[in-house]
Nucleic acid binder design. Sequence first.
DNA 1: AATAATTTTTAGATTTGCCTAAATAAATTA
DNA 2: TAATTTATTTAGGCAAATCTAAAAATTATT
Lengths: 216, 216
Amino acid sequence: MQSFTEENYLKIIFHLSQDSHPVQTNAIAEKIQTKAASVTDMLKKLADKHLVDYVKYQGVTLTEKGKLTAINIVRKHRLWEVFLVDKLNFKWDQVHEVAEELEHIKSDLLTERLNEFLDFPKVDPHGDPIPDEYGKFEDLTFIKLSKLKANEKGTITGVSEHSSAFLKHLEKLNLTLGKRIQIAEIIGFDGSVELLVENQKINISNEIAKHILISK
Amino acid sequence: MQSFTEENYLKIIFHLSQDSHPVQTNAIAEKIQTKAASVTDMLKKLADKHLVDYVKYQGVTLTEKGKLTAINIVRKHRLWEVFLVDKLNFKWDQVHEVAEELEHIKSDLLTERLNEFLDFPKVDPHGDPIPDEYGKFEDLTFIKLSKLKANEKGTITGVSEHSSAFLKHLEKLNLTLGKRIQIAEIIGFDGSVELLVENQKINISNEIAKHILISK
DNA sequence: AATAATTTTTAGATTTGCCTAAATAAATTA
DNA sequence: TAATTTATTTAGGCAAATCTAAAAATTATT
């Protein structure tokens, strides 16, 4: 059985693995809000337990065992987020911290019953896919809003940034999951985007557009 | 903010305080599955934080601050138990361990929303009272089944033992919360009790009768 | 009241996860 | 390629929570 801390490392390594293989010590340190030296210590420990493959100075990769553990944490995190939003009326910007705690509750029975209670959700309140009990993700194809061309249409189906500040901002702009949008104009100067949502014209920066995920 | 471990000590001290003032080091050690020396260490730490009043060799008492913290843990534990039974169809003998983990989730918003979602329950699945957000318990008056005389009637409204083995046994005997019972006979030899539940005659030992709580 | 038994505390170690500072390796730049 | 910068690791320590073994205080027993 892994500790709370070990589980967090595995989860962070899993997320960072999406972008780059293998994962660097410093990248982990930054995400986990700790020092590189502490990360090195933990990587050795995880390697001893065969949860990661670790080569000095080269970085780290999850083993199959480590990956399954990480995915299970992600699964629980996202299921709890659905619970908080659907059943307890949390806003989508309020769920992250609480789910960070709930994701470490160990009972498999709890996870399965929760899944059932929530009616087997496929995505969490930010549009992130929820893996099944075997760790399989249904692959959803998203495009970043910043990649769309003028006049293209699409539906907001996810976000790639979960900070409360960002999510509150989107909410204020009426840019929430499921909304149909169309690109009005792309400003060449700074890459900012003018778009149409429910007949309203809205301007967002390129930085924000990069974190909004669209499906057609 | 208290640690997981500190919270557990406070909770155990709170429960033991119901029986005897002040609480002995050894009693805590036994409940918390640790050694007396470790308890002594922790009691000093809790005293430094003004969560308990501790006198060497004399035992320990919760301060007002410690008591409020402990009651908050108990409140969360019992609310989660209601959630598990009412919403996720757990059996009453399956909830304890999971609630031991869930009780440490910190969000006050979560606790209040959960309370609302569960429709402000007054008791948990074992009949234990759930304190309100200010730490006030509604006092329920229970009598141990073992204290009833022949022919007396009552309703099962609680249990004072939460082990899975005990609760499963009660369930098999059809002795669940809300059941109306009547004492048929008390066997002088060993204090065992013959009782009537829904026109069935059932025999239980005195040991079991002591852990069934009755209201009239 | 003196002795024995029990309970509690102290002293000294251990483990986990983290830290700082210094050393080493890798990557970048001149 | 040599020098510099950046990334990573090692070494040595610290705090929390635990342990064992020994000492001290309390309680019970003769």
